[in-house]
Design a protein around this nucleic acid. Structure first.
Lengths: 152, 152
DNA sequence: TCATATTCTGCAACAGAGTTGCAGAATAAA
DNA sequence: TTTATTCTGCAACTCTGTTGCAGAATATGA
């Protein structure tokens, strides 16, 4: 079955189209050009995107509201997740297989203070934190700010 | 010298007033009733507050804009810091001695999914994360979501 | 205590982010 | 191809946050 992270970099347009449709289908969403374009923008750019970024990329083709609703739907279905830094809210693809029911909750994000881009650091674990008595943790979100390899 | 975290719970109104004025003075800010009230709200509530929270508490006494500007000033002076979760932006007192020049950048925040309150967990360290080659970290921000001792 | 330079506040007006209702358009499934 | 369901665009709105400016309040030195 299709997992987003498995989509190769050098995909052909046709196979991508099928992958996109497939991904939407898995999450019980209708295939529409807007959803395919939003999804494909996330896949191509590989970084966390704000609503503004998407509006910049697709704003002439789709209404602001539609993009908002697409993001909201993708969030609910577990296709993307929120990424927060001190500049505001962005979204990034869920690399692990998430769904409406089950969502991978631990994330490490790295925000570069030079280029401003935010990436998910996959395959990294957040080390255990020993919390004071009484605190029952459910999810962890680590935001690291610094300089990324490209800008280093 | 006065450190905010050192202000006792059972302070008298008068001594608090002096503490507040003192704190503002340390950071080279004029004492105004708005600033004192905002500061004292943070001290009393002990949790991270949004602009909306403060407007709810002080909105009849002060203009929206003034509260925004007070928060901005406090941020710049290192009196408070930003706290982000998936619901948005809040602010919390800096417990360590921060200033305009030097700011303690590593924070652990705990957000309770029951009562919705967010606390800073002082005295806790974020464990070392081994980043991929090329990433140069500068600051760490860990948001833990779960159930707090009060709601447990 | 008073005068003055500096800083703060409130108001008005604005920009941007995000939401809602509704009618018409597009999709999936029979 | 038909039909039920879902999606989209439009209009209008709320909420958050910002800016400019004039008048008010504060700190400082005399």
């Amino acid at each position: 079955m299709v997992v987003l992270a498995a989509i190769p970099d050098n995909y052909t347009k046709k196979s991508t189209m099928n992958e996109l449709k497939e991904t939407l289908k898995i999450h019980h969403l209708r295939s529409t050009t807007c959803r395919e374009d939003v999804l494909s923008t996330f896949i191509k750019r590989k970084i966390a995107l704000s609503h503004g970024d998407l509006e910049g990329a697709l704003g002439e083709q789709y209404d602001r509201v539609t993009i908002y609703r697409t993001l909201k739907t993708f969030l609910e279905k577990g296709i993307i997740h929120k990424v927060l830094d001190d500049e505001g809210l962005r979204y990034a693809l869920c690399s692990h297989r998430c769904s409406e029911e089950q969502h991978q909750h631990d994330h490490i994000h790295f925000k570069c203070s030079e280029c401003g881009q935010t990436n998910c650091l996959e395959n990294l674990h957040i080390p255990a934190v020993s919390l004071p008595v009484g605190y029952q943790p459910e999810s962890f979100n680590l935001l690291i700010q610094g300089v990324c390899p490209k800008c280093n």
